[in-house]
Nucleic acid binder design. Structure first.
Lengths: 322, 322
DNA sequence: GAAGTCCAAGAAATCGATTTCGTCAAGGTC
DNA sequence: GACCTTGACGAAATCGATTTCTTGGACTTC
């Protein structure tokens, strides 16, 4: 089912068929003939061929570290909404936080001639050089990249961490701990820094390290970190937890100890999906995942459209909301 | 950066470059020259061109109804594991249960010359005709299709529903209700049918419709259905809930009524992610999402590899596990 | 009515990698 | 030494849609 067969059936040349299909000038008669032939043959243009010739593709790559984390799927949803409204399809790639898989997908993005890439980097040193040097637009999302020539959309993690901690102090808790993500992950550091700032202000003491735990952004890590905190000689009475998955684990550990919120204060980054009733008494810092995705897609589409202004970083607000 | 430039730099023809890159016979000397040139130019073959010529693509489409449902992301993970091990990449498409978006993605799959498609159909009448008539392999997953000439991988939903209900009766509950999904969705019907079978056996009565609610497979639907059941003059003391999202809503409604499990018996299809502590006392029918994805990918890869045996349906077991 | 303008539409080049076909030389056989 | 086999490798065709270049006819204009 090629354009040649359509042309033959319509009794015109392939150029005319292409023109009809792409909305260039043709006589009404030719148009009628071509449309009839295409209809009769159920013709679908071969995108591979058209892309090879036209060098553009209507595909956006979205590379995320963990497809099973609802935060990233909500983000993906945001990207998809914007992209499909603009006629682009979204290819989702899951790196499992593995820089090597990430590199593979970045290579694929180049080789597949994708129109652009939205990347939630596994590491702030992620190598997007290949994309950039091929003039392929890239937007970093959620986490920013070390290089300054790439657009980014992030949330104000430090303010969010501060606001989470402040809200716990304001509610009367006095020893507010922090469970954050891997040392190497920017969002984990910033959220922790926000907490540290608020905690220092309220307790006067800069010796907070007892109350700080680095975990892995996963359920089990959260559980274990909370168990450790509860086992301290002078345990905390509240905690800021830096993501949703760890919060699920932390809640579990709290429940084991008979300390369900709000008896123990808990403020969490990101919504706890599907855990609505377990969520009661928990303070949530709303991380606008979908909006992040939408903002990133908007930015990327502008770049694809030819916007060559200097790289910018969009920072969305993340504030404790309840 | 084309194969021509590599050839020029290496002082050989493009055929030789292609041969080196694809592992055909070449002299050691040519190989060395070509590899050096490719390295020096940071050459990445243009997949679009290679696909156009070779007519095969190393991309598998995975079309799912709800990317934010952990069941489907776990399934996607399974597909991805198998596919990437075999050198294929996975393109994830989200239909939002919308047959129209599904049709669009199916068309894209044809036009993009994807190697094959794994589809969790929004409707059992989903039109995969285009794929089939283009000889493009398709595997239905989770839900089967009306047409019999397409491979499918499903779970034994009826047995799962039966086992869920049986386990509640065995634990001493006597009025076991059922909250299932949309009437039009096969899995919802089958899970309900399993429940009905067990309930009929135990209660002797075939008049179970009071205790049956059709909802929408979403959190709010589950909450509302459970609220309705609890408001009955003669309310149930247990329920089978046909998916994870509705269970989250149902749990919420139960909590509002002061009836947390195991006071009220609850058996759920599929794991409740991130709700570990809320999950206590709940019976879970393990729906092997990842394994479904793996099985579907295995089947699809066989078909892509040229297996032309008659269409088959693989049924995985889903049994109450605790 | 000659010259100029305009437009539809066909022929052919093009995108970049793969693959077929043919050539040439080295090595083997009788 | 004539003839055949084998292997490396270059020239050119190929995949299918798009786009440039060209042609020819209709229509203006003075």
């Amino acid at each position: 089912m090629t354009i040649y067969e359509v042309a033959a059936r319509a009794g015109v040349s392939t150029s005319t068929v292409s023109r009809v299909l792409n909305g260039a000038r043709v006589s009404a008669e030719s148009e009628r003939l071509v449309r009839a032939a295409a209809e009769a043959l159920a013709f679908t243009p071969n995108r591979t061929a058209s892309r090879l010739r036209g060098r553009r593709s209507a595909v956006i790559g979205l590379i995320i570290p963990d497809i099973e984390n609802p935060f990233f799927t909500a983000l993906a949803r945001g990207v998809e909404n914007r992209a499909s409204a603009a006629g682009y399809s979204v290819v989702l790639c899951n790196t499992d936080e593995d820089p090597e898989r990430e590199a593979t997908y970045l290579d694929i993005a180049v080789a597949e001639h994708m129109a652009g890439v939205i990347l939630a980097p596994a590491d702030d040193a992620s190598d997007v050089g290949r994309l950039v040097s091929h003039q392929r637009p890239v937007v970093a999302v959620d986490r920013s990249l070390a290089r300054a020539d790439v657009d980014a959309v992030t949330v104000d993690n430090r303010a969010g961490g501060r606001s989470a901690a402040e809200s716990l102090f304001a509610a009367g808790y006095t020893r507010v701990a922090c469970i954050t993500g891997p040392v190497s992950v920017e969002t984990a550091q910033l959220r922790m820094a926000g907490w540290r700032q608020a905690a220092t202000r309220h307790t006067g003491s800069a010796y907070l390290d007892d109350l700080l735990r680095y975990a892995d952004y996963r359920v089990e890590g959260g559980r274990q970190a909370m168990a450790e905190l509860l086992a301290l000689p002078d345990p905390p009475d509240a905690a800021v937890v830096a993501n949703n998955l760890m919060a699920a684990g932390a809640l579990d550990a709290l429940h084991d100890a008979g300390l369900d919120p709000p008896g123990f204060g808990l403020a969490v980054f990101g919504d706890l999906p599907f855990a609505s009733f377990g969520r009661r008494g928990i303070r949530v810092v709303d991380v606008p995942a979908r909006e992040l995705g939408e903002a990133a897609a908007t930015l990327l589409l502008e770049r694809i459209g030819g916007d060559t202004s200097p790289a910018k970083t969009v920072v969305l607000r993340a504030v404790e909301q309840r």
